[in-house]
Design a protein around this nucleic acid. Structure first.
Lengths: 198, 198
DNA sequence: AGAGTTATCTACAAAAATGTCAATAGAGCC
DNA sequence: GGCTCTATTGACATTTTTGTAGATAACTCT
């Protein structure tokens, strides 16, 4: 019995890259940065590790690409909900959206990963997003840019923290996992209201 | 010319372990989880990598020990400042202390690392600390335990987020790095006041 | 001083992870 | 059908990282 050569699936370069990145993302979120091994990524994508190298050049290439797409997704999720319809409802919803963005698809874990690996330069996208919010909804509401910036900094930090450790923190003190998120949301909302209506 | 054998420094097991752990911590904070290599840790500690293995058994042993001591330090830093002298000043200082704790010596990065690696079980220490705060200063102030818990969850999450990405976030939008921290502190303070004086 | 203990070292070995290369096989095109 | 292009692969090569073993030197105790 001779060994059958594996039958191949031939994808377009774009499809191949996306397939691989999805596997990489899954691994990152499951096992953390340490789990991002070439062969495991390949395995998860149903492909040989040589293929991964063909498309990304090196393991670093994979990490870089992954970071970039994840940031892009994160920023997109945040901005998507910034429609300038009703500024009031918007401001109330900002927290909601932010929290979602950082909780969904491991946004917070991505950010943490970037911080831990010192990849903070990659964040020009984020900067653009922040500026968009400041000059968009905030300015419309007539908020002083300085103050608006501060609020955003706080809100994002909070969303980050909640997204990262919110669930386990709540469970740690014997509450349902969403407790942190809900409490933080309420806290943020009332804080925002107090800071803005004045 | 024959090679001189390196002269040895013989430490007590405890001192040796501590020396090594310090190097490991430095590396973790500098290069992230990926930078925690056996030889680098050894180099930073000024010993051979075999010595590290002798004391910790494996690289996992190093990680485990490191996580534990870092958590211990973090919790200690938080609780240290919980002296039941003046409940009022205390509550105001809580934010300060929390933020310090998560910012100093990479507390936030530690927590992030633990989360990313899925090492959340190691956190029994934290649980004890939270309970101590709830039943201590909070109860003294006559705060409903439920509400107290929520506030703590929020405060810790915020401290976490600020400690992790606060500085780079501020720099990202062109402010001095402490901006996030200061804004968050003010936000937290007024929020706490509003939630408690009622 | 001599002996015992063990933290430490060097040298080697094993394993894991990354990277290279030539051959192959899908898919579109003539 | 035959041709071309290249995504894919298996097998090999290299580098990195972790782990093992025996010898040695620092320290304590008698």
């Amino acid at each position: 019995m001779s060994i059958e050569p594996a039958r191949r699936v031939r994808r377009s370069p774009e499809a191949a890259r996306e397939n691989i990145l999805q596997s990489a993302e899954r691994l990152l979120l499951e096992k953390g940065p340490q789990g991002l091994k070439l062969v495991e990524v390949a395995q998860g994508a149903g492909v040989s590790h040589a293929t991964v190298l063909h498309h990304f050049g090196s393991i670093d290439g994979v990490q870089t690409a992954l970071a970039e797409t994840m940031i892009r997704q994160l920023v997109a999720r945040v901005l998507e909900a910034e429609r300038p319809d009703d500024p009031q409802a918007q401001l109330e919803g900002v927290g909601q959206v932010l929290f979602d963005a950082f909780e969904t698809a491991g946004g917070a874990r991505l950010a943490a990963w970037l911080e831990l690996t010192g990849e903070t330069r990659r964040l020009t996208l984020v900067r653009a997003a922040v500026e968009e919010v400041i000059s968009g909804p905030m300015a419309q509401k007539g908020v002083d840019p300085e103050k608006a910036t501060n609020l955003i900094l706080v809100a994002v930090s909070l969303a980050m923290g909640v997204g990262l450790i919110g669930r386990s923190l709540a469970e740690l003190v014997g509450r349902p996992p969403e407790t942190t998120r809900e409490a933080a949301l309420a806290f943020l909302k009332s804080g925002l209201a107090a800071a803005l209506n004045r």
